[in-house]
Design a protein around this nucleic acid. Structure first.
Lengths: 210, 210
DNA sequence: TGCATTTTTAATCATATAGTTAAAAACTCA
DNA sequence: TGAGTTTTTAACTATATGATTAAAAATGCA
């Protein structure tokens, strides 16, 4: 008989903590923050009310925990999509595709907890966290552009900061369109086209060069 | 004595309907939809509770009215910025600048009712309205690009639809950054840079042309 | 089996909130 | 001035919601 994980002492829980947090994420994604009641969470997470308070604290505490977990998971996947060994063009396309896919995945409400839900939460800690997350995203994308310069994929005068902002802005735009119901197919097409656009070298006065 | 507007019969209101709606807009912009209580509206609009229900209906009805007014005002200003007689580059920059300025105007919470608040409202009518508004925005931008082709500002094979999507996505991204507190100055700089980017002609295989 | 531990069950409390009502106030018109 | 009209004042009802509590149930351990 295998005694791999000593069972804890008292009455066993009816829920798995990780699963419950995942379910809470779905609830917040589909109803926002203010739109969610404790009863929504109780129903959605499969955790009875006193246990919810005991293990996860109040709604705000739970949301912060959900938000951190979501950001870590999504951030690491985005980093993976971006930094995988491949052409710069494919990195950008992969990054945007990832944004679209995660914003339109089945089983979750369309949109993104970080980009669509959290920004409208009136809470200083949430806002601070978002600022930091955005800064982290910028740093990551700029790093990939700089690597592209080192590898000779783009010219040394490539406007790294501007293009990083643009890439992230387009990711935000695609995500918001997912939120309001734009189909994944449309967004994936636009993600690929945006990747091409962002690689154009710095623009001089040669606008009418056709 | 001037009898320019026959005063109505009963006790005069102590609020102006237009001003009250404007105040309601501020309330929804700063607290979202679900985060707003009737008491918030009563306090913010300067309309007492029974009058609020009598003249504006319940919260949902009021929000829809606010949303329509907001969309009309913002849409007409955006159209003006875009269709004003000027170079295509300046039209795009003007459009994005307008988005940034309206998302960072003083006296209002940063962000946009249409792009940041309404998308997370769980209401079929709101969502349908947003879909229509987005479609209208796309049509407007595409028109401007087509005019640019006619005027010879961009080549006939310019990818109108893709660039229109990109322009609107960038506007969404800039607006969301405003919502989370990015300063106007930064966003205006990025708006201008984005306008340049969007005018690049169609990209072939000439990515490494440096 | 009985005691200690942990979670659930079920109930409860206080507050917040949406929405309504009746009477008083402020006005116009005759 | 008095009747008719409209809005405000102030109070109220019912429900929703956040949060807590005490007892019961389910387990491990001796």
């Amino acid at each position: 008989m295998i005694k791999n994980a000593a069972r804890p002492r008292g009455r066993p829980r009816n829920f798995d903590e990780g699963e419950a947090l995942e379910k809470a994420t779905q609830v917040f994604r589909s109803k926002g923050y203010d739109g969610v009641t404790i009863d929504d969470l109780v129903a959605g997470m499969g955790v009875v009310r006193p246990s919810l308070y005991f293990f996860f604290g109040d709604k705000r505490t739970l949301f912060l925990r959900v938000l951190h977990a979501y950001a870590e998971k999504k951030g690491s996947r985005a980093a993976k999509a971006l930094l995988e060994p491949q052409s710069l063009r494919d990195s950008l396309a992969g990054f945007l595709r990832h944004a679209v896919e995660s914003a339109t995945e089945e089983g979750s409400a369309p949109g993104c907890l970080l980009l669509c839900i959290a920004p409208v939460v009136n809470d200083a800690e949430v806002q601070q966290f978002l600022q930091n997350t955005v800064a982290g995203g910028m740093a990551l994308v700029k790093r990939r552009f700089r690597d592209g310069i080192s590898a000779g994929e783009i010219p040394p005068d490539f406007p790294v900061t501007a293009r990083a902002s643009q890439l992230l802005d387009i990711a935000r735009g695609l995500t918001m369109r997912a939120q309001i119901g734009t189909p994944r197919k449309t967004l994936l097409r636009d993600a690929n086209e945006a990747a091409d656009l962002l690689l154009h070298p710095r623009r001089g006065k040669a606008a009418q060069d056709h």
